[in-house]
Amino acid sequence: MAGKRAHIQEEPLNLVPIMNLVSILIPFLLMAAQFVTLAVIDSTLPAIGPPQEVETPPDKPPLMLSVAVTNEGFTVMGADAVLNPQGAPPSADAGPTVPCQERPCQTPQSYDYKALTDLLNQIKDEYPDDETVILVPESRIPYEVLVLLMDATREDVNKKDDKGKSRLLFPNVVIAGGAG
């Protein structure tokens, strides 16, 4: 009677080998786990050398879009057709095109990236083939402003096409020597 009972008794599953495996796997995966995703922003130096010959004269004068960064805000240059439709040349003391929310800018967040993106959207409408923007930052502009500026000039995340991709504005960034 007693022997028969032992026969049908359920053996508990031996989990110890699985435990061993798991406790080895966990430290290994912990080491390889990545909790932040890295990405890169491509940029080039301004090309040095003679200007390249343009074979066919372009219909429009080429856009030399550049954005200067000061501690007052962003100054967009080189797109006068959009910025000054009346043709009046901008005066030197007009101040930045896209001023900071507070002047002078206190933090990287006080620059008005949204307004700059909106302005670049208009310029892109006028010059759909241009992809290059030249950044001219002042010496004391923090690197973070530069990265946020490159984000603002690269794409408009609020305008998505039907595939869910953001509208590309000026993805080729050239960082110029800078003023002062």
Binding site: V36, L38, A39, V40, I41, D42, T44, L45, M150
Partner: peptide
């Protein structure tokens, strides 16, 4: 070296 890749957190 003239092609810069700025590494950032995505």
């Amino acid at each position: 070296f003239s092609n810069f890749r700025f590494v950032v957190y995505s």
